[in-house]
Design a protein around this nucleic acid. Sequence first.
DNA 1: AGTATTTGACCATC
DNA 2: GATGGTCAAATACT
Length: 338
Amino acid sequence: MDHKRIVHELTQGKEFAEQLKIHLKNPSSSHETQEILIHNILNSYENTLSLLAICGLTTHGSNDEPHLHGEKGITNLESQVSLTESPHSEDSDPVFQDIHHKDSGAKRKSKDGLEKWKKQVKVRGDMVFEEALDDGYSWRKYGQKDVLGAKHPRGYYRCTYRQLQGCLATKQVQRTNDDPNIFNMTYHGNHTCHPKNDTCSSLPSPSSLSPPSEIQHAPPQNQLLESPKIIQTFQAEYCKSINENLENPLLHFPSTSNNNFVFPMLNSTFDGNRTPSFISPTTSESTHFKSIVAVESELNDIVSATKSTSFYSDDVALPFEELEFGNTFNFDNSIFFD
DNA sequence: AGTATTTGACCATC
DNA sequence: GATGGTCAAATACT
């Protein structure tokens, strides 16, 4: 029984409720802000119930696996990443199921046998650009190409450990035409790599933020169930931070010194046109810029069932909502470092 | 010097 | 032939 976590979840839920109360009184408050707060409140409930389920106090959830929603817990970035995962990859991931009300179709694979899915990422604010597109894995860019109908070139990335470990995971990053802060990420194949100096070897395999469901280590379907996704996610981030010897782990992973990770948030409504001037469409996707990150949302019906050679349509019109957050985002990561 | 990125060329598919 | 994806040499970065 982990009272600490439960109290933490309830406390966060209360804080979100209080924020929602304030927003409801504010006529200028956006609908999206209110929705995300509601979403976070519900997540707090869900997480609490999941924790209680672990203790056998409830039978929360449709399966026995506790699934922390962790949206707030991970950072808003990860939260929205979750929201952007494509539905078909959610089958084995209960976290995404109730978020998307996803279809219950079987996993789809491309003709080469590798799974493929998309998500949409929005970058904004005051955070390192990489953070927005960071999915917990180490990628190496191997190509860039102008794509027909796209204003911006498409970047091609493969797993850094492709040669060393034969990991075949790749991803494509495509800046959208409408909003240069929005990126369409297309993942192809799951990670099978085990990063060097994996200091988390004692932990369950680091799962990814990117492959939303069956993450990287085979057999994916089984391993996914080994630990709550949020914990897996943090393990992946934690390992990555250590492995990369990040100079400023605060940017990448919550500090362990005070167990509080303060995630700065925009004070004002995001201006979609506020693209940092030093971002060039032709520069590498790994170019840094100061921004806050929010990864947004929904990937619905990105599967093109009519194409036999590809499960996804490249021209996916996704509903996208602007999101706002509070001025600060406090994350207590102590639950992950007990 | 080792590693990562850039970019033109090449190849496969439609 | 057009297009998308990958290769690999050149270049940049640390």
